[in-house]
C-alpha cells in the first residue's frame, strides 16, 4: 500500500452568497494515495471543484484538516501556500488559462521562471514537456494559433513544469471534442502509468470518470459513494 499524499479530515467549506450561507462541502473525509488516478464526479453544485481547489491549495476550507504530503496546508501562510502551488501541484484548468501573449513554450516555462530555473534548463525542459504531449515544433505558436486540444496539452505540459507531486485537473476535457478528449485522457493516464504521477481529475462526464482508477462521487457537498473505474492497476503493467 503506497503512502498517503492527500488526506482530508472533516473538511467543510461554506461561503455566504447574498443573504444565505452555502455549504459547499460538509465534513469530507478522503484519502488519496501517491500514484492514484482519481476522478471526482457529481452534478453541478455538488462541490467537486471546490474540493479540488482546496486540495490544490488554491482555496482554503472553512474547517477541518487538509493534509498534503503530511503537512496541514490549512495552517500554512500565503507565501508557504505559494511554494506548495509552485513546487508540488500542477493544475489543469477547463478553460486552459494560457496567457495569450506568450508562446506555448513560454507558457510552459512560466512556472519555472518563478522557480528560478536557469534559462537553458527552462528551454530544454519546456521542449521536452511539449514533446511529451505531442507538440514537437509548436513551441513558438501562440495559444490563438493552436486548437483547443493542443491548448489543453500545453496546459498539461505547464502543470508538469516544476515536477509536481500531483496533477489536479478541473474538467480537463470539458471544452474538447471526442478525439481531443481521448487524447488528453490518454496523456493523463500515461503520466500516471509511466511516471507514477498522482492524478486527481474533476469531471461530470461519466465516460471520462470511468477511465480513472477510482471514482469519488459527490452530491450536495458530501461523498455519496466511491467506486473503481475501468482503469485498473493491472492495466498499468500491461501498458
Amino acid at each position: 500500500m503506497s503512502e498517503v499524499l492527500f488526506k482530508t479530515e472533516k473538511l467543510s467549506k461554506s461561503y455566504v452568497s447574498g443573504r444565505r450561507t452555502v455549504n459547499a462541502l460538509e465534513e469530507i473525509d478522503l484519502v488519496i494515495r501517491r500514484g492514484e488516478f482519481v476522478a471526482i464526479t457529481g452534478h453541478s453544485g455538488s462541490g467537486k471543484t471546490t474540493l479540488l481547489n482546496i486540495l490544490a491549495c488554491l482555496d482554503r476550507g472553512s474547517s477541518g484538516k487538509v493534509l498534503f504530503d503530511g503537512v496541514d496546508v490549512q495552517k500554512l501562510g500565503a507565501s508557504e501556500l505559494n511554494r506548495v502551488r509552485r513546487d508540488k501541484v500542477g493544475f489543469v484548468f477547463q478553460s486552459f488559462n494560457l496567457l495569450p501573449y506568450l508562446s506555448a513554450k513560454e507558457n510552459v516555462e512560466l512556472p519555472m521562471e518563478v522557480g528560478r530555473l536557469r534559462k537553458e534548463k527552462r528551454t530544454e525542459r519546456s521542449t521536452d514537456l511539449l514533446a511529451s504531449v505531442g507538440l514537437e515544433g509548436r513551441g513558438d505558436h501562440r495559444p490563438n494559433q493552436l486548437s483547443a486540444g493542443e491548448q489543453q496539452r500545453v496546459a498539461i505540459a505547464r502543470a508538469l513544469a516544476n515536477g509536481p507531486s500531483a496533477v489536479l485537473a478541473d474538467e480537463p476535457t470539458g471544452n474538447l471534442d471526442p478525439d481531443n478528449k481521448a487524447a488528453v485522457i490518454s496523456i493523463l493516464r500515461r503520466l500516471n502509468i509511466e511516471q507514477g504521477m498522482t492524478v486527481i481529475m474533476v469531471t461530470h462526464d461519466g465516460d471520462v470518470a470511468e477511465r480513472s482508477e477510482r471514482i469519488v462521487r459527490l452530491a450536495k457537498g458530501k461523498i455519496r459513494s466511491e467506486g473503481r473505474g475501468k482503469f485498473l492497476r493491472t492495466e498499468r503493467k500491461e501498458t
Binding site: 490544490a56 488554491l58 500565503a78 507565501s79 505559494n82 511554494r83 502551488r85 509552485r86 513546487d87 493544475f91 488559462n97 496567457l99 512560466l110 512556472p111 518563478v114 522557480g115 505547464r158 516544476n162
Partner: peptide
C-alpha cells in the same frame, strides 16, 4: 485580474 489569478495559481507571490 484573471491573469493575476493564474500567476497566483502557478505560485507567483504577491
Amino acid at each position: 485580474t484573471k491573469e493575476f489569478g493564474l500567476l497566483k495559481a502557478l505560485g507567483f507571490g504577491n
